[in-house]
Amino acid sequence: MSRPHFQNKLLALVPPAELELLYPLLEPIDLPKGFAIATAGEPIQYVYFLEQGLGSIVSVSRQGQKAEAGMFGYEGFAPTPPAVRSTMSFHDASLQAEGYGYRITIEALWAAMDRCPEFSRLLARSSQNLATQVSYTALSNAVHQVNERLARWLLMSHDRLRQDEFLITHDYMALILAVRRPSVTTALHVLEERRFIRAERGCVTIRNRSAMEHYAQDAYGLPEEEYRHLFP
């Protein structure tokens, strides 16, 4: 079998012998914006490996209050519960920026994990890194200003989208950061005034990433450091 070129970091790291077993179980799939990959309170049927696109994992309270808990793109997989044989989702997960990738049924995933130890380890490391990301989002929500949280979120999205321009409304960023929409608009002005970004209607463009990283330095970088440690 000639090895397909994967953009997904986990699939790219699966050793050839394991890939031979895994690859026939993967189904290529287009992932339009808004595509639901898991729904809170419902059973999980598939696990997705993005090649391109950006997914958002949202916590939903019993009364329907929402905030983004984490994000994923080509660096990981989602939803993560099946990696520990859990089949129930406690989060909404959907595509925030369209893309494509592969999916696998959870039964096939488990069969593959039984026979592919390195693949299983890759899933475990990726789940660990998502947990770290979520824990630092919790820290940031508790201690950082909306401006810094927005900068952090833009940097994390930029890492995963690998493009400077993203189509996103202020409404959606408000949901993600769990703040009112005018607060997002105000924070975007602050970042724009410092020339880190350009904010237009429905679109944000990164102009100076390194300056924005410096600005968000207390809020950004540690989960990314762990990722580099886990996937050298």
């Binding site: 703040v179 009112r180 929409r181 005018p182 607060s183």
Partner: peptide, 9 residues
């Protein structure tokens, strides 16, 4: 809405 946002900020 403006009051809620101002409270956050």
């Amino acid at each position: 809405e403006a009051m809620a946002a101002a409270r956050e900020l």
